[in-house]
Write a protein that binds this DNA or RNA. Structure first.
Ligand code: MN
Ligand code: MN
Ligand code: MN
Ligand code: MN
Lengths: 250, 250
DNA sequence: GCAAATATTTAGGCTTACCGAAATCATAGG
DNA sequence: CCTATGATTTCGGTAAGCCTAAATATTTGC
């Protein structure tokens, strides 16, 4: 398997392309990619041409961008790195879950494969990070309970929080103050007749203060796994063999 | 205090300038700096001009290169990072002492100040790394037993190994096979009449196989602290206040 | 003291990854 | 069907860090 030489820019591009498709089924467009990376559209056009030359993406001009098998493999490797690092920072170094993202964003490009596997072993090979995001194993397999975004669920649905968007540290601190975290059991009660938001009830809360109303942004940042309906499922990724290890050459 | 914007290149230059003067008293020259960094002489000339503009070094054309107080502060911060990382990798992630250098060389540029201080706390604020190199504290103070290179000592000297050069992993593995490590007690016995090397006796070895002969390269890589003569001494560095934290802006 | 050898700097170029402005393509509304 | 609008790419440029080759300064040997 070719060990394409990578840079931290290439790694971030591929990771963002993957992340977009992880929950939306459609492929990412040039301008969305630019926004997520915080660079100009023209920079994306150039870099996508380069990624195509490297065999990491498929792309026709003026069309959305798809990862190749090789690109997917690199992306999964970066996602594994990022999420293992977040988990490690919380469990071993006492970071709070709102502090870990930026640190992991830098470290993911700097640590060796050896470091990653040591960390994974020390943590007992976890399959999800502090925000519930699934951690691919060393072969790119992902294990995750089927989940839906809270704002897309009808009243009556009940389950446990399985995933929380980690991109806004303030939102994470807000959720903490509400007593909502990973694996919190809750039920969707309804929607306020006018106005925004979603009413939910925390099922196992000690101080049961009745239903709470979550803002739209909050509800869209939470995923719910239905209780007792599905077992975790493993998705075998397309990439045969181990994840690419662009970092072992360091 | 100014927070000079740094890059990993700048950090490595300043660190190597400092490392040269840590045991030799003379300042480093352009070509030695080039060799240690693995870059062309011309690259050093350019970068040194830049470091001077940034106020990190003093330099007149065709003369050796000195760190300013600000440069020293940055260098000590990088040395602290590197050596704490090496210690952490050995103690918490099960690295062997010959594996840590390259990993730390990358990580030192990527971790935040927060990460460094968490690590230091978890390790109990160690004052030396796995090779005996002193770890500056957060204010730039260095604690280290006075020591001399083994190849500069006359027969009769006795003491414990206080420092071992970490630049050649093979040498470290060789020392391990000889039963020589940090704090090993030994006595300089003499020199072979002709030929190279240095004869030493391991004082507390279980299987006392008599004196061993160390090669010149080995002897020059070991430092000995005299037993029972001096207490550790603390060197207050010139820089007032805390070490520069170019990484806190990440 | 001066020429040869050595050390250092300068000059001119390259690569990566950005940018803003201009050109080009795609498509939605009329 | 055809144009206006927005999305995307192309074009010319910049900055950091490196390189080789050429120029210049310093040191050494006689
Ligand atoms: Mn990143
Ligand atoms: Mn996460
Ligand atoms: Mn380094
Ligand atoms: Mn060391």
């Amino acid at each position: 398997m070719k060990q394409t030489a990578t840079s931290s820019s290439i790694e971030d591009y591929v990771k963002v392309i993957y992340a977009f498709t992880e929950w939306q089924d459609k492929p990412i467009t040039s301008s969305v990619l630019a926004t997520r990376l915080g660079v100009a559209n023209s920079s994306v056009s150039e870099m996508v041409r380069k990624l195509k030359d490297l065999g990491l993406v498929d792309h026709e001009p003026y069309s959305p961008i798809h990862l190749t098998a090789e690109g997917l493999s690199l992306a999964l490797s970066m996602v594994r790195r990022h999420r293992l690092l977040e988990t490690y920072l919380v469990q071993e170094l006492g970071y709070t879950w709102d502090e870990v993202h930026d640190e992991a964003e830098q470290l993911e490009h700097a640590v060796s494969d050896h470091f990653i596997e040591r960390m994974s072993a020390k943590l007992g090979h976890p399959v999800r990070d502090p925000h519930g995001d699934p951690i691919p194993d060393a072969h790119g397999n992902i294990t995750m309970a089927p989940s839906h975004r809270l704002d897309e669920l009808d009243p009556g649905h009940t389950g446990r929080i399985s995933r929380i968007s980690d991109h806004d540290p303030e939102l994470l601190r807000h959720l903490e103050s509400l007593g909502i975290g990973l694996d919190t059991q809750l039920t969707v009660v309804g929607r306020p007749r006018f106005g925004a938001g979603l009413q939910v009830r925390l099922d196992l809360s000690e101080n049961d203060a009745g239903p709470q109303t979550l803002g739209d942004e909050v509800a869209a940042s939470l995923w719910l796994a239905s209780v007792g309906r599905h077992a975790d499922c493993t998705v075998q990724e397309l990439t045969g063999g181990s994840l690419m290890s662009p970092h072992s050459a360091q």
